[in-house]
Amino acid sequence: MSNNNDKPLLRVQGLKKYFPVGGGFLRQARSFIHAVDDLEFDIPMGGSLGLVGESGCGKTTTGKLLVRLHEPTDGQIFIQNEQGELEDIAHRKGESMKTFRRRVQMIFQDPYESLNPRRTIYDTVAEPLVVQGIGTIVEREERVAALLERVGLTPATSFMFRFPHELSGGQRQRVAIARALIIDPVFIAADEPTSMLDVSIRTGVMNLMMELAGEMGVSYLYITHDLAVARYMCERIAVMYLGKMVERASTEELLANPLHPYTRALISAVPVPDPRISRQAIDIKGGVSAPIDPPPICRFFARCPLGDDFCENNPHPPMEDKGGGHYVACYKV
């Protein structure tokens, strides 16, 4: 493994994705949804980052940008290449893009939609190998079988030629994990991979993901709406609100000492699976709206209990280090 610990595996700078609203063929869009607006973060080699936020905050879009399912409107996505140098892949195309595809993979939320119902488990897991032209048929078969066993689908030979509909949700998600790992990626974006699974199945998949990531030295971005899951899965957590990152810190620091008013409200709203613990809910007014052509001021201003004239007349606050790598974007803390 070409390891270089000084450099992050992945570095994102000024990442933006605007989606046009109401435009069409030969018709210019008038307004834009600022789905992801000026993100900046690093993920170290072998590290994990939990991306947390409510629906519509841009966390899934961020994941899709990192694996280049979307092309960013602006900004850079640096990722270490095989030589350990940072390469910007934000606007890659063609053959060099295909090489980059070997380095990053994604695991999707819905295990019923992420596997092609007409292809066998073998076809699905081997697809990256086939597309990238890696190995002979026999080698691929061996590799798929070995990985299926590793993700807990034993005996692999009995699973390889089944179809997705013959598998349970948990088993399907294991297949999706196998597909993501088959070409030895260095980075995986996992988009709520366990949110549709039942509790007794979910923990198995979560533990498996962590184990495999550790074993194979894969870094991951774990996208979730559930802070408790993010706490369990990730070393660091970043909170997003309407396309902006508002706070980022190591997991325990963020949960114990949240600084941004939104993070505080979010944490206080999470129900605790124990009636003996009572929590103090912090209420914030209003609801989430879509960030269509938002004003340049702090995105959270309309709902913020701390907001004042200064916030109203200044641009969205920059991410500032409050010590120990605890970044927060707020003028008032």
């Binding site: 899709k64 694996v67 399912l69 893009m97 295909k98 595809r101 070997r102 990053v104 993979q105 994604m106 999707f108 939320q109 819905d110 939609e113 992420s114 596997l115 092609n116 292809r119 699905t124 697809e127 990256p128 597309v131 990238q132 999706a176 597909r179 070409i183």
Partner: peptide, 22 residues
Amino acid sequence: VKAYIEAARIAGGNDLHIIFTH
């Protein structure tokens, strides 16, 4: 719009591959 189409794209599959295998 199914996720397996996106998965195929992430695997590096080109348009022809996606149209004819998925």
